[in-house]
Structure formats: structure tokens, C-alpha cells
């Protein structure tokens, strides 16, 4: 199995405060990992560091993606290399249509891969197929990026972008939060439809319920900036029953499983 992502002893600060205190994680192609953890444990920081969001200082450790030093790449280079982050809070960009935005993104990636850029007609044909996956109406494409979208629409739009851009490594940052059960199913269906032997996914989530629909290969618990416990699907169920308290307690005392 090919290792897609290899994180070693990753430490990072935000605003002078250490958030990630030595993360180790390996994700192989074809796998789906879930990273769970209480609020403030560093889940979103990890997603931000992996995609190159500004405002973090990496103090130690390394991240290899397909054998390359991921941290040396700019955010756009990471995206073009196939790393995708579904945002916890998708940003509204008034003035740019969803369609124009997505075509620019897709063509930037295609250009990077040495593929021909798609014109509006070919792009539309591709997009129409993907729209069905996430149950998005076509008129949403003409509207400005995320502007005036409902919470559910925004999250679905993230999954839709993921479906169009076909990344190799998908990071989903709390994509399930704030969704009703129907929207959650749509998101889960989108994620499941994209599972493939070449692709890996890392789902960052607070709750177990998304994992009811997306069956992860591995589950990790992040607490106080470290992965304190790893296991399979059962670990998530255990967390759902018992909460995070027992694990946080264990993390504080320094015991790792």
C-alpha cells in the first residue's frame, strides 16, 4: 500500500501558543481516517497546517505527502498536487460566481498536471454529472461563491467542489457540524462516492454520527495537541457512549494508548 500522508512529530503554534504538540499520523491510499476530539484539541489547526493557512508557526516535525515536503509548498501548490480541504466555515466571495470560481480552480489543477484546460462547454458537461451526487441545483452555480447559501448548502458546495476537483487527499474539517440528518446523508453519500483505492480521506469531526454513514478504516482521538488513542470504528462508538472525558484524563496524565 502506498503511503500518501506521513506526519511525524508535528508541532505548531498559533499566536505564540503551542497547539499541536507532536502529531504522528500515517494515511495510506485507499483509506479513510477519522480524527475526533473535543473542542480546542487542535483538530482545525491540523487541517489548517496541512493546507497552508497563514497564522501558524511550525516549530518541529515534518509532513510528507506523496514523498514530498508538503509544508514547503504554497496553499495553491498543495491544491494543485491534489490536497483538498472542505472548510468548516466556507468563505463567502461575493462578486465571483461559483461556476467561474470552480472552473478557474479546475483549470489551475489541470494545467499543473499538464492537461488541457476545459472550456465552458466541457466544464458544464462535467459539472452536471457531479451536481447529481450532492443534490445541488444548477442555479446555485450562477450565484456568487457561498454568498447567501444556507449552512447546509455551503457544506454541500464543499463536497461538490471536491467531486469536481477529484483530489488525492481529502481533508474534511467538521463538514458534518450544523447539518440536519438529510444534509448529513447527502454529504456522507458524496464522501462514499469518492472513496477509491488511489484516494485517501481524513475526516475531522467532533461527533460520531457522520461515521455511522461513512465507515472509517481508522479512528484517532486528538486531545491537547496529540493523538492520544487510535483504533477502529469501535473506538468512535465508545467515545459516543463515554464522551471524551476519560481520554482527556488519560492525555493529561501523559499516558498514550
Amino acid at each position: 500500500m502506498t503511503t500518501l500522508l506521513q506526519i511525524k512529530n508535528l508541532k505548531a503554534n498559533a499566536a505564540g501558543k503551542q497547539i499541536l504538540k507532536g502529531i504522528d499520523l500515517e494515511v495510506n491510499a485507499g483509506e479513510v481516517h477519522a480524527i475526533m476530539g473535543p473542542n480546542g484539541s487542535g483538530k482545525s489547526t491540523l487541517a489548517g497546517v496541512l493546507t497552508g493557512r497563514e497564522g501558524y508557526e511550525i516549530t518541529d516535525g515534518s509532513v510528507l505527502y506523496q514523498g514530498k515536503d508538503l509544508l514547503a509548498l504554497s496553499p495553491e501548490e498543495r491544491a494543485r498536487e491534489g490536497v483538498f480541504l472542505a472548510f468548516q466555515y466556507p468563505v463567502e466571495i461575493p462578486g465571483i460566481s461559483n461556476m467561474f470560481f470552480l472552473r478557474a480552480a479546475l483549470n489551475a489543477i489541470r494545467k499543473h498536471r499538464g492537461q488541457e484546460e476545459l472550456d465552458a462547454v466541457d466544464f458544464m458537461a462535467l459539472v452536471k454529472k457531479k451536481l447529481e451526487v450532492v443534490h445541488i441545483k444548477e442555479d446555485l452555480l450562477k450565484r456568487p461563491v457561498n454568498a447567501g447559501f444556507s449552512g447546509g448548502e455551503k457544506k454541500r458546495n464543499e463536497i461538490f467542489q471536491m467531486a469536481v476537483l477529484e483530489p488525492t487527499l481529502c481533508l474534511l474539517d467538521e463538514t458534518d457540524s450544523g447539518l440536519d440528518i438529510d444534509a448529513l446523508r447527502i454529504v456522507a453519500d458524496g464522501v462514499n462516492a469518492m472513496r477509491s483505492p488511489e484516494r485517501a480521506m481524513v475526516l475531522v469531526t467532533h461527533y460520531e454520527r457522520l461515521l455511522e454513514y461513512v465507515n472509517p478504516d481508522r479512528v484517532h482521538v486528538l486531545a491537547h495537541g496529540r493523538i492520544v488513542k487510535s483504533g477502529d470504528r469501535e473506538l468512535a462508538r465508545e467515545l459516543e457512549k463515554k464522551g471524551y472525558g476519560w481520554i482527556e484524563q488519560a492525555a493529561k496524565t501523559g499516558a498514550t494508548a
Partner: peptide
């Protein structure tokens, strides 16, 4: 900056992101 980062995270270059 949040908008610029969002565009960049989709592969649209920093300069292009600023201009689009």
C-alpha cells in the same frame, strides 16, 4: 485574507486570487 486563502486552497494562485 480569508477569501484569498479560500481561493488559494482551491489551486488558484495568490496573484490570481487577489485579482479574481
Amino acid at each position: 485574507e480569508a477569501q484569498t486563502y479560500y481561493l488559494r486552497s482551491r489551486g488558484i494562485g495568490a496573484d490570481e486570487a487577489r485579482r479574481s
